Amino acid sequence: MATLEQIASLVEQGKTDAASKYPRGLIGQPGVRECVRELIAEGMDPLRILNEALTPGIRALGKKFSEGTVFVPELLLAAKAMKAGVEEVMPHLQAGDIKTRGTVLLGTVQGDIHDIGKNLVKMLLEGVGWKIVDLGANVPSANFVASALEHKPDAIGLSALLTTTMETMRDVVKQLRDAEVNVPVLVGGAPLSHAFASEINAHYGEDPQAAIDILDRLLPDAG
């Protein structure tokens, strides 16, 4: 019989379903998809599966990534497993059952086409209940402002991998403040630092898990 703890562990290990080839020690064994189906068939509340198995699993893996004990491939596999579980749960939830934490606007600033880091942040934040408005990569400063005014997010995340685009982040933050968009701004990317983030009135996340931690701290009652 499947358990909530087993599903959380399978998410953490990136075991999507029985056909998954990873992890090798679990080849042919049930994955997240099968275990979620089993618990739903037995009558377990699907919201409980989401809150007590799927979300804790992705959080645990995110913390390991932050600690440097797992890497991007493991994070991607865990996100895929989490998505499979959510796909099984969603048809059994009533409208209004899932209360999102709030909305986060994400994008890679203009001049930078790298989006792997942004996409990892997106997957983890979605996994713990945030609604994401993803603007993509190479986003002009004005687009961040327009989208912020349209969607009214609870926070905004800016990504940049190139040192040449760091100053663009400063411009985005300035334009947001000039437009009276005063929600927290998170910044991340290889060339950044806490000092730079503080200088531009933003919050620095050194990895995807840090984005979760910052939002938990700044917006504990969001949603």
Rank of each mutant, 00 (worst) to 15 (best):
K118Q: 02
R24K: 11
N119H: 01
G57K: 03
D97V: 11
S66G: 15
A53D: 01
T55K: 09
I132T: 07
L61M: 12
Q110H: 13
A41E: 15
K118P: 01
P91G: 06
G25Y: 13
E34Y: 03
L76F: 10
T100W: 15
P56A: 05
V133K: 10
Q94R: 14
G111P: 07
V109R: 00
H114E: 05
M123K: 10
G68H: 09
T100A: 14
I27W: 12
V32A: 05
K21P: 11
L124P: 06
L54G: 04
A148E: 03
S66I: 01
Q110T: 13
H151C: 09
S20G: 08
V36P: 04
V32C: 04
G102I: 04
A146Q: 15
N143Y: 14
M44T: 12
A146G: 09
T69G: 02
T69R: 01
K122F: 08
G28W: 13
G25C: 09
V121R: 01
L106M: 15
D112T: 00
L76Y: 09
R33F: 12
A84N: 02
P153K: 01
I132S: 06
G129V: 00
K21R: 15
C35E: 13
M123I: 05
E52A: 07
G31S: 08
F71I: 02
G85L: 00
G25A: 13
P30D: 09
A84T: 01
G28N: 12
N138Y: 01
L149G: 13
